[in-house]
Each structure stands twice: as C-alpha cells, then as structure tokens.
Amino acid sequence: MEKILSVKNLTKKFKRIVVNNISFDVEKGNVYGLLGPNGSGKSTTFGMLLSTINPTSGDWYWFGKKGTDSDTLKKIGAIIEQPNFYPYLSAETNLKIVAEIKGTPYPRIDEVLETVGLLERKKDTFKTYSLGMKQRLAIASALLNNPEVLILDEPTNGLDPEGIIQIREIINNIAQQGITIIIASHLLDEIEKICSHVIVLKEGNSIYSGRVDEMTANNGYFELKADNNTLLINALEELQWFTSVKQEGEVIKAQIRDDASISASTLNQKLSEKGIYLSHLVKKKLSLETQFLELVKNTKNHA
C-alpha cells in the first residue's frame, strides 16, 4: 500500500512537551483518526504537518518527500480552524474567492457543493447557514483543488446529532472517491463509525497506531444464560477459553482469551455435551470506548 504520509519521532515543546516523539504512517485511500482528549496534541500535530508550526525535532514525509512545501500543499485540503467566510456573500461567491486563490476553475464549485449537499443553497448568504451547513461549506472549500488528502480538525465539534450524521455521511462519500482522510477528534464514537485506522494520543504521546478493529487483540466476549447459571459458570471455567467469567444480573459474561478462537455454535455444542442448555447466547465485541479505556489503563500500568 502506498504511503501518503510518514511521521518520524515528531516532537513539539512550548513551555512543556505538547507532542512527544510520535511516529505513524498514513496509507493511501484510508480514513485515519487522530484520537485524544483536548490538549493531547492533535491540533499541534496538524500544525507541524502543514508547516504552520515549527517542530522541536523529528521529520515527516508527504508523498515520499521530506517536509511540506508549496507543491505538497496543493495536494492537501485542510480545515484546521472554524469556517471563515464572508457572512454577507453567498456560498457560491465565497467559493469563487477561494477558487481564485487556489487557481481552481469555477465549474468545480457546483461539484463540491453537490458533494456536501449544499448545491440548492448556493445562492444563500453564509450568515443564513446553520453551524452544520457552515462546516459542510468549509469541507467543500477544502475539496476545491481536488486534493489527494483531506485533513479535518474536529469536523463535528458543536454540531447537533443530525449535523454529525450529515458530516459522517459526507466523509464516507469522499473516502469512497479514493481520497485519503485524516480526522482529529476527541469523540470515540465518531472515530469508530468513520475511520479504518486510528492514532491514539495521550498527553502528547502516541499510545497506539493501527487499525481500529485491531486496537487491542481482544476477541470479545459471550453473553450467556441458562436455567442453572451456577453450573454454567463452572462449565465455562473448566473450558479454559476465557480470561474471566462473571454474572451480571441474570446474564453470564465470559471474556474470550486472546489466543482462543471460538464460535458461538462451538461453545453451544460443548456446553450441551455437558448437559447445559442455553436460553441466551450472543457473541459480542468490546466497543472502541472499552478498548480505549483498557489501552489507557495499560499505559498507566506500564509507566
């Protein structure tokens, strides 16, 4: 897979270290999430990668070329701050101004407005737009120059649930066009629904970089119920496929060992051989939130 971006030991120190020796790669055609709470170094990382902030140390390579020069910036569309358009001008006129700056032909304006669902509102002034519409117009602006990479810093910040869903759908549609997307967010749910890969930042440190579905080696867990849960618990513990077996209300939760590969049908068969018949059996994966909390807890334990 072609590398769009490669970050090597990137560090930024102001009065304190804000970004601490982080390294990660971004491969073409994927959606990457830069995940962490406010103050974890996400925006500073973007600033360095776009050459608006000078790094203390470290290197990065866009498209195999070191640093970020003017030619590289032409391949990148970015929204780092709040949308900044002329309030009394229409969306179309605002984008014409951006198109002039970027050297983009005007016909491209209708294309990007259609992508973000604003084509029918292109004659309306910016000040009449809702917050979600303003954010969508900003994405349209970032897409004007047909970028290979789209960088979005907290794209759903402050939006209502409907606005969040609209932005999510737009991002998914853009990704299907083959554009590589990097999103900074503090929202676990957003990253889980949008991104294929994630870089987790905690106090400026990268504590994980990889696929979202491989954030931990966790195989998930089973939820089970039987007429006699005591016998069920004993049988599950005897199988030695689980790291923990515990009862929560009427349901038994059995955490699958990382080195165990077991299907619901196999487990059901094994238990029936022991004379235990289940009234409830569901295999579930841990949510990204649970995995994230485990990840953070483990880094604390190893600190």
Rank of each mutant, 00 (worst) to 15 (best):
A138N: 04
N21M: 03
K12A: 04
L150C: 05
F24V: 00
I171Q: 05
D110H: 10
I164V: 12
T290L: 11
V251N: 09
N228Q: 09
P87A: 06
D153R: 02
T93H: 12
T266M: 11
L95T: 08
K202C: 06
I53P: 01
A235K: 05
F292W: 03
R16V: 11
D71G: 11
F242D: 03
E294Y: 11
D69T: 06
K123S: 14
K134G: 15
I182H: 00
L89Y: 13
M1N: 12
T45A: 02
E223F: 11
V296Q: 03
V245M: 06
K283Q: 14
N30D: 12
D59K: 08
F85P: 03
A138V: 05
P55I: 08
G29C: 10
K300T: 13
V149K: 00
G41I: 00
G163E: 05
R16K: 15
A254L: 10
F222H: 09
V198S: 00
P37A: 14
L278Q: 07
E190C: 02
T299P: 04
K96W: 09
L144T: 08
N298F: 11
S70G: 08
I164T: 06
E273G: 10
F24E: 01
N228D: 14
L95Q: 02
K225A: 12
W60C: 05
K202H: 14
A254E: 08
